[in-house]
Amino acid sequence: MSAIVDKFFFYLTRTIALGILLIVAWIFVELFNNSLDSIQAFGFDFITEDKWAPNLEKFGALPAIYGSVISTFLAMLLAIPLAIGVAIFLSELAPAKLKTPFGVSIELLAAIPSVIYGMWGLFYFVPIIRDAFGGVGISMLTAGIVLSIMILPFIAAVTRDAMNTTPDILKESAYALGGTKWDVIKDIVIPYAKAGIIGSFILALGRAIGETMAVTFVMGNVHRISADLTQPATSIPVTLANEFNEADSGLYYSSLFELSLLLLVISFTIISIAKFYFLRRKRIGA
């Protein structure tokens, strides 16, 4: 009897674990199947065409791809230096009494839902951009900044964790040689934790590019490529969030599914690079 239950428990857990792989494969297949109409209609032009005109049944994803890339790039550009500063402060500079409360509050801020960052952006940040640059305030720049604030706690927390893996004995040796704090950080901590730090940046990039709610409020969903960052723009997730419930034709739906597939493939690739190339090495080295 016991042997049967034992076998049953084994197969039960195994089936469910395998089910996870099945679900992931199913997601790819289902999104691909639903994109077929659009893939057949537009082929490769889908990602090079800059016209997105549902009324003409013409769908080009370039503005959304452009918006995703630029807003994420802006966000990383702003968030990374700040996050490194915060991480250095948390791991090396802050007095021991402050480390825990500061560290925990950063982690708690990373847990706040992104929709709230978006709401704050809409009510408090859009007016600032509007006053500073004119226009409506809803723009690529606003989206980039709100996104950077949203991912800041995440990057800071993981960068700090990576920096904290440096063995104390290495740091102490450097201090004993007369190194200043900055010497120790630049010559010991950062080289030691390099793979982990870069990996966490790329992981954050993977997350930022798929982030929907923090940017949907403040980007405007305008399918136009403009070099002027203070103009409204769109990104892949913003287009999906705004248009999925409005799509009224098969081809429209199919194009939105192709956008989803594109987004999934992009973030899967970025996260895999972070995980397999950088974060794995850290695990072996640690």
Binding site: I20, E30, N33, R207, T212, L240, S260, L263, I271
Partner: peptide, 27 residues
């Protein structure tokens, strides 16, 4: 097999949630 499931789960933890919405819409 276990390592593959771990890796895929790690990736799914950071995958865009809106895509999951599109998937569930389809199924």
């Amino acid at each position: 097999l276990a390592e593959i499931i771990r890796d895929i789960s790690d990736i799914m933890m950071s995958a865009p949630s809106i895509v999951i919405g599109a998937f569930v819409y389809a199924i």
